[in-house]
Design a protein around this nucleic acid. Structure first.
Lengths: 130, 130
DNA sequence: TTGACTCAATTACAAATGTACTTAAACTCC
DNA sequence: GGAGTTTAAGTACATTTGTAATTGAGTCAA
């Protein structure tokens, strides 16, 4: 169990951006932010440094520029983050969260269908392994 | 838009407990915690005070004891919290979160069925309003 | 080659968070 | 009615978080 300190909200956005870009310099992450989300260049720099210290990203020096890349898989971070949220806000129950997502957020027609397919698949797998 | 400061992780657990109990004193919230989750009585007290200041709970004095009750509906807090998470960790996309929940957490057979029902209902509503 | 720009690195700093101790008043049981 | 128990209220305090300014070293364009 590689216990990393949890991601803070702000760090999450930066981490997600690094995953999206696969690898990126401070500037690239900074540029990836919509200008509506105003944030200072050095703030991004600070977040990346903290992400490195916490073990979420790797940094290699390329020339004199630091290139960051994911060190922990998105899937892992998502699992940890969501686990924690579910524990705290839903006392560990997954269902109420799903219900909220389905009922209170606007799920597109396409997503509805995709979800049904997912559920079907899962059901079949279950049945198969009986 | 009644902007309340967001709940912190710790505050979430306490808030959830207040919702569960409908209304509760510090001691009742404290007692509701499993002894495995060791936390000091006065820590609970502090959290409740902060929840009140942030506007999440009401407190009324009953004798000399303070009784806390929800001021914001769970549904609202859940919406706000999940919206924020989805924005930060999934760039606003709901689907990947659902997918994670369905695929990476152990969904019981019952929950699977319940989810399908939910999805069916939603699909019908959609069709009806065309 | 000098002024503009870019990066890295360091430092800053208030607010929020997690966690609790202290003090004093009220309450309860002998 | 004194001793222990609850509660309230205030205070404490290190760490984390959000957000950035500063300083100094390299880089490029004119």
């Amino acid at each position: 169990m590689t216990e990393r300190p949890a991601l803070s909200k702000g760090e999450m956005e930066i981490a997600r951006t690094v995953w999206e870009l696969k690898q990126a310099t401070v500037r690239e992450v900074f540029d990836a932010f919509p200008k509506t989300r105003s944030i200072d260049f050095t703030t991004v720099q600070t977040y990346l440094r903290r992400l490195e210290k916490k073990g979420y990203v790797n940094a290699k020096l390329e020339g004199r520029t630091r290139v960051y890349s994911p060190r922990v898989k998105p899937r892992t971070v998502i699992r940890e983050t969501v686990d924690d949220l579910v524990d705290r806000l839903f006392a560990g129950e997954t269902f109420p969260l799903m219900q909220h997502l389905i009922e209170d957020r606007n799920v597109s027609r396409q997503d509805l269908d995709a979800l049904k397919t997912l559920l079907e698949q899962l059901t079949e797998e279950r049945d198969a392994s009986d």
